[in-house]
Simulated assay, not measured.
Amino acid sequence: MDICIEQPAHARLITAEDREVPVTATLRYTAADPLAVFVDFPAEAALDGEELTWIFARALLDQGLRAPAGHGDVQIWPCGGTRTVLEFHSPYGLALLQFQASALRRFLLRTYALVPAGHEDLAAVVERGLSALFDGV
């Protein structure tokens, strides 16, 4: 049985005009993919009107809550004492979102309670990745 943690989170999407638009997201973690965290956005938060999920390393979220982290599609950094910024890059543009740092920390602690850092079953992760790669051939 795969155990999954889901936690709603309120964010503020920062627009090009420096406006803040409220957005609700769902933070998700599953023991079957212990190195990753998922951030699900509803259709109304996406440009194309379809639900959207960003996937990135749990370690990146951990690092980004304390100091700027990430190079590439996902970057995370603290913003003041109470907020954390998640910056997502895609071929269509970028999204800059501010989350309450306490909500992200609470979620992260729940993931570590489920699968402690260093106790991830990497063999299973590699096996699933190889299966996905070779099943598509």
Rank of each mutant, 00 (worst) to 15 (best):
R19A: 13
Y112E: 08
Y112K: 12
G93S: 08
G49E: 01
P22L: 13
L109H: 08
A46G: 10
T82N: 13
F88R: 11
A57V: 03
L35N: 10
E17C: 02
D73H: 11
D48G: 08
E50V: 05
R66H: 08
P78M: 11
Q75P: 00
L96C: 12
I14T: 08
A32H: 03
S102L: 15
F107R: 09
F38K: 04
D73L: 12
T84G: 09
R12I: 02
L96H: 14
S102T: 06
A103S: 11
I14V: 15
L86V: 14
E44R: 14
D48C: 10
L94K: 07
L60V: 02
A43N: 01
P78G: 14
G80E: 10
G80R: 05
L27Q: 10
R12V: 03
F38C: 08
T26K: 13
T84K: 03
L97A: 14
L104E: 06
V85C: 15
A11R: 05
A69Q: 11
D33G: 05
Q98E: 04
A36V: 01
L96K: 07
E51R: 08
F41L: 13
T82Q: 12
D40S: 08
R28W: 00
Y29T: 02
F107W: 04
L35A: 15
P78V: 11
A57M: 06
R66T: 11
Q63H: 11
A101K: 15
A95Y: 01
D48I: 03
Y112A: 12
G80P: 02
G93M: 04
Q100G: 12
H89C: 12
S90T: 15
D73Y: 02
C79H: 11
A16C: 06
A16H: 10
W77Y: 06
A113F: 03
R66L: 09
R105D: 04
P91L: 11
T111S: 10
L61V: 06
V85T: 07
R105E: 06
Y92Q: 12
L47K: 04
L96T: 11
L96A: 08
R110S: 15
A25W: 00
G80F: 05
Y112M: 11
R105G: 06
A113G: 12
A101C: 03
T15N: 13
L114V: 05
Y92K: 09
